[in-house]
């Protein structure tokens, strides 16, 4: 029982990080119809920035930590804006293979950039004092930082939901998902909307990276690991579906967490098994919708 609770909490916490990643991936796909494989690289960039530049803020106490959680994603969003306006914008209407090549190429490029700046060794971000240590639950210890992520996740989901469903900006994004040409015929600069959505997606990738830096080691290769998992999340939940990203992330997080117990060697494969199952039974994902 106690193991179950701890693994469940761990899985949900992992799921929250995956949600932060997958919601950005899904948002970008929803509006621009591009699967950005470089999303994982932006997450890695966020993690490295947090572990190096962001670490400087920790002396300021809790406010420094929250400032870091805001600044790092903002820097990543800026990188995203540069990428969108110089590269991505050119490929929205091109065939999928070309899009794949570009975003995969960017993955390689960003990985080299990170290596050039910070080198190959692993780094860790010292957790801020107020989030260090563990607390007791069902007679076991669970890290406070994990609980923090568990709280941040739903808050972020709520905020994103509010943005998409209760603000004019969100309405425009949802309209652009359905029909960008019509949105522009109504006098809205869809190109600007796309840059904004891309920047928001990259902000989320950077936030995921900054959050994870306080939890696990930061190193090269984390880009590929996370993008594969985030991809499984959006396929399971339904590409372009916000609720799907949340559901998929929690499911994959829990699958990974319990998988480690049951089958330590093969747990990494389980997300793909889940993905394959969903693809067979419901190719458009649990909460997605068949393509028009």
């Amino acid at each position: 029982m106690d193991t179950f609770v701890i693994q469940l909490l761990g899985g949900l916490s992992k799921g929250m990080i995956l949600f932060v990643l997958a919601s950005g991936l899904s948002l970008i796909f929803g509006v621009m119809r591009v699967i950005n494989f470089a999303h994982g690289s932006l997450y890695m960039l966020g993690a490295f920035l947090a572990a190096t530049v962001g670490a400087q803020f920790l002396g300021m106490g809790p406010s420094g930590f929250f400032l870091m959680l805001l600044l790092v994603p903002l820097i990543v969003a800026l990188v995203g804006i540069v990428m969108e306006t110089t590269l991505f914008r050119r490929i929205y209407t091109k065939e999928h293979l070309l899009q794949l090549l570009l975003t995969y190429g960017l993955t390689l490029l960003l990985s080299d950039v990170v290596r050039m700046i910070w080198g190959g060794e692993y780094r860790t971000l010292r957790q801020p004092d107020f989030l260090r240590g563990g607390f007791e639950i069902v007679g076991r210890k669970f890290p406070i930082y994990g609980l923090f992520v568990l709280i941040i996740g739903p808050l972020l989901a709520l905020g994103l939901w509010y943005l998409l469903n209760r603000t004019r900006w969100g309405r425009i994004i949802r309209a652009a998902v359905a029909n960008p040409d019509m949105v522009s015929a109504l006098g809205i600069n869809v190109r600007l909307v796309m840059t904004g959505v891309f920047a928001l997606g990259c902000f989320l990738a950077g936030l995921g990276g900054a959050l994870v830096a306080g939890q696990s080691a930061v190193g090269l290769g984390m880009d590929v690991n996370i993008i594969v998992e985030a991809f499984a999340v959006v396929v399971v939940g339904g590409l372009g579906s916000f609720g799907g990203a949340l559901l998929g992330a929690l499911l994959i997080g829990i699958i990974l967490s319990f998988g480690i117990l049951v089958w330590p060697g093969g747990a990494q494969l389980l997300p793909f098994a889940a993905m394959a199952l969903v693809l067979i039974a419901r190719p458009w994902g649990l909460l997605g919708r068949p393509e028009r």
Binding site: R171, I172, R174, A175, N179, M182, A185
Partner: peptide, 29 residues
């Protein structure tokens, strides 16, 4: 979008309403 802002309103044949937005939201955007 610039042509629309200069004062021409287009009502397309295929209607192209936004299906996942409410009627009010369709008007508001």
């Amino acid at each position: 979008f610039a042509i629309a802002r200069s004062g021409i309103g287009f009502v397309p044949e295929e209607r192209a309403i936004f299906p996942d937005l409410t009627v009010w939201e369709n008007l508001d955007v």
